[in-house]
Write a protein that binds this DNA or RNA. Structure first.
Lengths: 340, 340
DNA sequence: GCTTAAAATCGTAGCGCTACGAATGAACGC
DNA sequence: GCGTTCATTCGTAGCGCTACGATTTTAAGC
């Protein structure tokens, strides 16, 4: 019955609902926006008409008329990575329940792509914008300055930021790992990283690590994986590293996936962890509890970032966010297991 | 200079660009949509005005006026999972370069959430819709039937589908693993799965596995992890499984993360893989090449799904997709390594 | 019953853009 | 020089909805 009423994509409009319910379009609109301001009798008739016609409001028309939108743009460097994807998932859940729709953009760690995506998202008149980190092109900054959309920069902490900030210090992550390794008596270290060139945050962790180690009289060899983490390459690189620098007694990795690659290579070479080589990762991914030995790592507040980003955004949208609460350092925690 | 022109979120309109460039708004609109239909001189003046004012077109107004949108909705069960996220990433890249914007929804393996998301996305008047799998609520189906948006159902194959289909047979995945294990002389098997209740596709893989094994006279013990894969639980469950059924000589897992959990437990218990227990996963995730021993698994066409979904969608949007090419089985491949 | 305030409903005027046909300009042939 | 054609440019009428002030209905008070 309700099946073949419409030919093509011709959609049911609010006017048709109004006609069927025998009220004016304004009343239907009001019913949809503030249901308890219409009398119960009409409300019922309107709902019946909506159900019968299968009416779906036209978001674009609504957005245009109200010059607001329920869109929140989110830019992440990659969604193929459980760090950001868990933040996204949490963010999505919290914002959706407040009636917002996420528009997700994938910058692929590329500033100019970010710039393009910012423009593309702003053209939706979003209610808010979530960016990853502090690094934006000059042009992006000028576009954003022309705009009073609330902005959260997440997953980092320590710079002034454009508006709101929710994150933690990557430098501290590096420092915590270094301090732990130093405490275990290690001095000759290596840092193995993916995507070093493009990922500022991996670089910050490295700097925190290196500076802490060197301040204590140790040394750090840096090794970079080309592009995204590739397990085989990690194995080869680890092998070569240990061949060139047999004195190395601890390896810090830019993330847990890299650490898993190193760990597998150590198993293969029968290098005992942590006796021969201490090993630490970053991320506290699920599997780190069960590797042999379990992996010492850093727990970043992945889900908390999503949750607090949503909270700040909503508060800011409601106009009730004091300046002092616009910046949030969620901190990190070293998870000590048996690999170092 | 361009900084404080606008107070608040008051945006620059096309009319203002037109005034500055000394042309009519229609010409600006035309320039934006089909640049080579305006004369070079004016084109230049218009572009200059756009740059000077920092004009960003209002997507909603455009969408409303043209009653088209450049939005493509995509629903996946979870983005915290490199299977779907790689498909998403590929899909995004291909569709973005064709000028489309993805609206991603996370169903969390929940049909009623999918229903809600379908409504929410359709209210954007999307140019296309991508769903994961064939399972939709009756209500979703009726909403979709009322609508002639092109639809791709991805990540599965073997049912008629609503419109287009791009995927592979999960039943076959199970069968391939079973056949391989049988070939290696195993008869007493187990299947360890996450999210068994909600994930139809994991269930299909299980059925393919079980039916193949049983047809050859073998047995299959099923073990389910509660909710999402949790490495520790996987370890415990594996331990209990082997205690109760020491005769088991091969374990198939619903995905590689589960397999990694089982593998770690085997390392811990010093059960040799594959001599004592053969092990296989699903997904061919990156790390499977480097575990000790490397993991035999199934390679699903993660990126290909994204690519072909984009291709079919674009062809369908251009009206040039013959009925016969609407369904695509991308197949899967068993990656034989050393774990079985 | 009548007045008055409050609640419910309605009508109108856009939101910023696109589609499309009308109007103008340029280019050309004879 | 003048029509004819084609390429540009422009004006107008919406797209489907919301905001808001105007209008009608209902309820309350005496």
């Amino acid at each position: 019955m309700a099946k073949r009423r419409r030919r093509g994509s011709q959609r049911v409009t609010m006017g048709e609902v109004a006609r069927l319910a025998d009220v004016s379009p304004s009343t239907v609109s009001l019913y949809l926006r503030r249901p308890d301001e219409v009398s119960p009798g009409r409300a019922e008739k309107i709902q019946a008409a909506i159900d019968r016609l299968g009416y779906l409001p036209n978001t674009m028309a609504g957005g245009l008329a109200s010059s607001r939108s329920n869109v929140i743009g989110v830019l992440v460097p990659t969604i193929t990575n459980s760090f950001f994807s868990e933040t996204l998932e949490t963010l999505e859940r919290h914002l959706r329940s407040a009636g917002y729709q996420l528009l997700i953009g994938n910058t692929e760690f590329d500033d100019s792509r970010e710039e393009e995506l910012i423009r593309s998202i702003l053209s939706w008149n979003p209610a808010g914008l979530v960016l990853t980190g502090f690094l934006h092109t000059r042009k992006s900054l000028s576009v954003l300055a022309n705009n009073d959309t609330p902005i959260v920069e997440m997953w980092d902490y320590g710079q002034p930021g454009l508006d709101m900030v929710v994150g933690f210090s990557h430098y501290t992550c590096g420092r915590l790992v270094a301090e732990h390794m130093l405490r275990q008596g290690r001095r000759r270290m290596a840092f193995v990283s993916t995507n070093f060139e493009r990922d500022v945050r991996a670089r910050d962790r490295y700097h925190g690590f290196r500076e802490t180690v060197e301040a204590a009289g140790g040394t750090v060899e840096l090794r970079e994986l080309s592009g995204r983490s590739h397990a085989e390459e990690t194995g080869r690189l680890t092998h070569a590293l240990m061949q060139d620098h047999p004195e190395i007694e601890a390896i810090a990795c830019s993330n847990d996936m890299v650490a898993l690659g190193v760990l597998c290579e150590c198993q293969r070479q029968k290098w005992d962890i942590p006796d021969r080589i201490a090993l630490a990762g970053f991320g506290n991914l699920d599997f780190t509890t069960s590797t042999v030995p379990p992996l010492t790592t850093i727990e970043p507040p992945r889900r908390e970032i999503g949750q607090h980003t949503a909270r700040l955004l909503l508060a800011s949208l409601a106009g009730e966010l004091p300046e002092a609460e616009k910046r949030l350092d969620l901190g990190v925690r070293l998870v000590e297991r048996e690999s170092v």
